[in-house]
Write a protein that binds this DNA or RNA. Structure first.
Lengths: 348, 348
DNA sequence: CTGAAAGCGCTTACAG
DNA sequence: CTGAAAGCGCTTACAG
């Protein structure tokens, strides 16, 4: 096809046969040479590559992929790539896939099962080799099966799903949140609120359970009123401050769903004239890059985002290479990071 | 091809001919029916769609695209998708492309020209229909031409390039930063530092110019020592606080490169025991969602990220639809957002 | 070491 | 309203 380009230039589509004709060779030889096959003599290969470069040849992956049924495309779908928690996971996936020359296609599902299914279907249409996903709330098992049954293996991150033996990489949420809760108990806090998260995800249930377990173990009664579910963002944490500060139980500390909620909550607390870290102790979760530069710097739980991303990408690549990765859940062990946002109990 | 799937199930590849044979029709009819062609009788069409569903047919876009030379793929490449400034642009692009059933492929270039060229080449190999990009520092004109000459139109966002008449959408940086600078001058500030940014981008040069112009207009001498170039992130702003606070000129205010730098700087100032918004006035740039919940809430300049994204996506879609979009630079007019991080001059 | 030919799964004139 | 046939640009046995 000829296309007239602005400026009067005409781009002529260069394909294997263009190179073949210009060199008096067959397309088979060109194809092999460009992919560094040892079947082609070294000097022929060099001549071919040189010619491809001068002609401005562009490899047509659609045509190749139609033939080989491999596309080199890997899909990644998470709740929201703008959330730095996922951002840090994605960065790790990106650097792992980069060195294997895969192209990765990213999408947000915003916890819409429809949007997620749509993405899976698009990926299948493009011949995607595999998909890494943090499943949307309410994802039916069939949606994952759709991918797997069509030869596109799936790896789960951050959230798990029941009734499915797909490799899953995530932090040990129950254990992690108990670290934060125990840290506060150790500082003398007894009235500890839990801010954010939802029972609709495995992560949400696990974290609440970890909080409850830690309190019980310390002999502290669990007061459901001290739980403020919902917030998952800075904005959410900021808005929850009003509710938190008006609780009649007067909590002296807050275990937050994640760092974003914690930072938002601290901003809200400061706006009300109290000093986070002194008047109210606050813990985060994830240890985002931002946690250490917040004011006050945030005591939080390292959740291994980079590990999750790296391992998930590795697992997928291994699977595509034919090795049989163990299915099931792989837990990353969280670690406590103690900073300035928590301190000894301080009666208001 | 038959693939044996875990669990003993065997997935049979369903294609147009599978449906055609099962219904005693030709593939041409199936193809037309699935794309809602009026050439196919309504009841035949319904029967075909029904059958496609029950057989679990998956449309092979690679094959279709090979034939039509349209892929429905649009590439987007920016410095860093984890930066909320780009995140807000991407969100707008996403929602604009979504409703036109395009797939978009995202990538970071981290200001590496090589990584960016790599992405453009991959996109060409996949038959991308177009690309929206915020060009990496040092992008040669040929890299954009490579895309255009191969029939893949490019739209630039946030940064512009010389010697190229490609549609470009960005904020009016020089004007915007002068708004912030004038605001501080109006509050009585005379020693105003500028923190962050780089002369290597058009944006960086424009913003510095806007700052210089505003000072000159007010008859204030421009002191190059008051410029601390470099920082573009929260971390960067946080670290710059030390340098800023030790300037012998003792600036009473800081015009920051963006909201991230401003928030980081405020954290650093607070860490040093000073109160941002009272002891030191700080302005941001972009008006990220976060600006209004920072402590103190951030005085900043609305930079129209959502507008930039929406317009760029629209321009590309229009171009793909054949309409001739005007090339050249389209400036979004910034607006001042006054909050709590700035106030009357306060002598330290 | 190189070439001729089939085929991946679609769409699109063209016939009827 | 439906079908037969060519062709998009590759790769892969198979021959030589």
């Amino acid at each position: 096809m000829h296309r007239s380009i602005k400026g009067g230039k005409v781009a002529q589509k260069v394909k294997l046969s263009t190179i073949a004709e210009s060199l008096g060779l067959s397309t088979a030889t060109i194809s092999l040479a460009l992919r560094d096959s040892p079947l082609v003599a070294a000097d022929t290969r060099e001549k071919i590559k040189e010619q491809a470069r001068t002609l401005g040849y562009i490899y047509n992956r659609r045509a190749a992929s139609l033939r080989t049924s491999r596309s080199g495309i890997i899909g990644v779908v998470v709740h929201d790539i703008m959330n730095p928690f996922y951002g840090e996971i994605l960065k790790a996936i990106e650097s792992e896939l980069d060195r294997s020359r895969h192209t990765f296609i990213l999408s947000n599902h915003y916890d819409s099962v429809d949007k997620q299914r749509n993405f899976i279907e698009t990926l299948l249409q493009l011949g995607g080799d595999g998909v890494i996903m943090s499943p949307a709330i309410g994802t039916p098992v069939e949606d994952i099966r759709l991918a797997e049954d069509n030869g596109m293996p799936a790896i789960l991150i951050a959230r798990q799903m029941e009734g499915l033996d797909v490799p899953t990489y995530r932090g040990d949420d129950s254990y992690g949140i108990s670290l934060a809760t125990n840290h506060l108990i150790g500082l003398g806090h007894r009235t500890i609120a839990m801010i954010g998260g939802t029972d609709q995800t495995s992560t949400g249930r696990d974290r609440y359970q970890g909080y409850v377990n830690a309190l019980r173990k310390a002999g502290i009664e669990v007061d459901p009123e001290l739980r403020i579910p919902g917030p998952r963002t800075k904005q959410g944490g900021f808005e929850a401050a009003v509710h938190f500060l008006s609780l009649p139980q007067k909590p002296t500390a807050a275990v937050c769903w994640n760092d974003l909620v914690a930072i938002g909550l601290m901003n809200g607390i400061a706006r009300a004239g109290l000093v986070p870290g002194r008047d109210i102790s606050v813990t985060g979760y994830d240890d985002l890059e931002e946690a250490s530069i917040a004011t006050p710097s945030l005591t939080t739980v390292w959740n291994g985002q980079a590990e999750v991303g790296r391992l998930a990408a590795r697992a997928l690549l291994d699977k595509l290479a034919g090795s049989h990765e163990p299915d099931g859940i792989h837990l990353i062990k969280p670690e406590m990071r103690i900073r300035q946002s928590t301190g000894p109990i301080h009666i208001r």
